[in-house]
C-alpha cells in the first residue's frame, strides 16, 4: 500500500487527530499524541495494514518541542510507516505501546534514557544504556555534560 492510501484510511477513521502527511523515502504521518495506543492497535490488527514489526522508537529534539517517532513495518505487505507526535519540552509524556509490541519495552527505555520522555504505563521504566545514577538527558540539544562523575574528572581538556 502506498503512503497516500494509508493516510486516507487513517484520516477517515481518526479525523482530527491525524495531521500532516509527508511522502519521502518512508511515508510519515504526524499524529496527536493522545491516540497512539488506539492507533497502534488498529494498525497492528487491521487486515489492510498488519504492521507487526515495530522497528524502533526514538525521538528528535527540535528547538521548541520534542518529537517522538515510531517506525512500523509489515512483513506481509512490505510497507513502512513512520508516526510522529509532538511533545511538550518541559514535561514530555506519551502512552506506551509495549503491550502491543513487546519490543517497545526496551526501545522506550532507551528513549527515556536519552531524552527524558516519560512513557505512561511502562512496566519498568529505568535507564538502560547509561548508568543508573546519571543526571541529564544526553541527546537533547541543550545538554551539558556533568563536570564530575563519582570523582572522575569529565571536563573537556584542550
Amino acid at each position: 500500500m502506498s503512503g497516500g492510501e494509508i493516510y486516507k484510511i487513517l484520516k477517515e477513521r481518526f479525523g482530527e487527530k491525524i495531521g500532516e502527511f509527508k511522502d519521502g523515502h518512508q511515508p510519515s504521518i504526524e499524529i496527536d499524541k493522545g491516540i497512539i495506543k488506539e492507533l497502534a492497535k488498529f494498525l497492528k490488527e487491521d487486515n489492510r495494514f498488519l504492521f507487526d514489526h515495530l522497528v524502533y522508537v526514538t525521538a528528535l529534539d527540535e528547538k521548541t518541542k520534542i518529537k517522538v517517532i515510531w517506525c512500523l513495518f509489515s512483513y506481509t505487505y512490505k510497507h513502512y510507516l513512520m508516526l510522529k507526535a509532538d511533545l511538550d519540552r518541559e514535561n514530555p509524556e506519551v502512552e506506551t505501546v509495549s503491550d502491543i509490541w513487546a519490543t517497545a519495552e526496551w526501545h522506550e527505555r532507551e528513549t527515556y534514557d536519552f531524552f527524558g520522555i516519560n512513557f505512561k504505563g511502562h512496566p519498568d521504566l529505568r535507564r538502560i544504556l547509561l548508568p543508573d545514577d546519571w543526571e541529564g538527558y544526553p541527546l537533547r540539544k541543550d545538554y551539558v555534560p556533568p563536570e564530575f562523575y563519582h570523582g572522575i574528572d569529565n571536563r573537556y581538556k584542550r
Binding site: 519521502g24 523515502h25 518512508q26 510519515s28 522497528v55 524502533y56 526514538t58 528528535l60 529534539d61 517517532i69 517506525c71 513502512y80 513512520m82
Partner: peptide
C-alpha cells in the same frame, strides 16, 4: 534535507540507520 530509514541484512539481523538531515554537512540525528 530529508529523512530516511534503511536496513540491511547483517550477520546478526537487521541493522538499520535512521538519518535526519537538515541540509548541512553534519547530520541532525
Amino acid at each position: 534535507e530529508g529523512e530516511i530509514y534503511f536496513a540491511a541484512e547483517n550477520p546478526r539481523g537487521e541493522t538499520g540507520f535512521y538519518i535526519k538531515s537538515n541540509g548541512g554537512t553534519k547530520p541532525e540525528r
